[in-house]
Design a protein around this nucleic acid. Structure first.
Lengths: 87, 87
DNA sequence: CTTTATTTGTCCGTATGTATG
DNA sequence: ACATACATACGGACAAATAAA
């Protein structure tokens, strides 16, 4: 459960937590940011979470594929070159 | 087509109708409660119908098998012995 | 074994209504 | 009047499992 400060808007606090997780590396480039899971985790409504997601999307931290999900934007796409080939 | 009262939520009214049909015997133990068919019959969205189904499932009136369908919970499982349908 | 159809599970996008500050 | 926050309700789209041909 997440503690929310009454002074700051919830959707701002949620966005702040998500932003930190992205910077922290908790959410990798392939991590799915599901609205349903996140709204359950934070205990907020969908509209609230979507507002947070919109902020992160506006910042370029995540990108959303309609009917699929939202994912973390890779910081360096070129880094994929030197990586594997097993895929 | 089903008439919905504006005062009560649709998913509650749908659940009420389905509950009555189960008690009525319209839906037997082997009857498949298809989401697609029911949403077409009641003229509601899938999310609405799924909410009604969740309520009935929570009440124990129906059970849902993933990727298969939802069925009416037999009141008396032993009754299946002496009872057999033309199927 | 492959294909097709059916069904549930889950995802996002959108709009509306209600309550609160 | 306005923004926040929640719940309801609609729609479309994709994935996975099951059953049947």
């Amino acid at each position: 459960m997440v503690e929310f400060e009454p002074d700051r808007f919830r959707w701002v606090q949620v966005a702040d937590i998500l932003r930190q997780r992205i910077a922290d590396g908790t959410y990798g480039p392939k991590h799915l940011l599901s609205e349903v899971l996140l709204m359950q985790e934070f205990g907020v409504a969908r509209g609230t979470l979507r507002k947070s997601m919109k902020l992160l999307r506006d910042e370029g931290l995540i990108y959303t594929v309609p009917n699929l999900g939202s994912f973390v934007t890779p910081r360096d796409q070129a880094a994929e070159q030197g990586d594997d080939s097993t895929e």
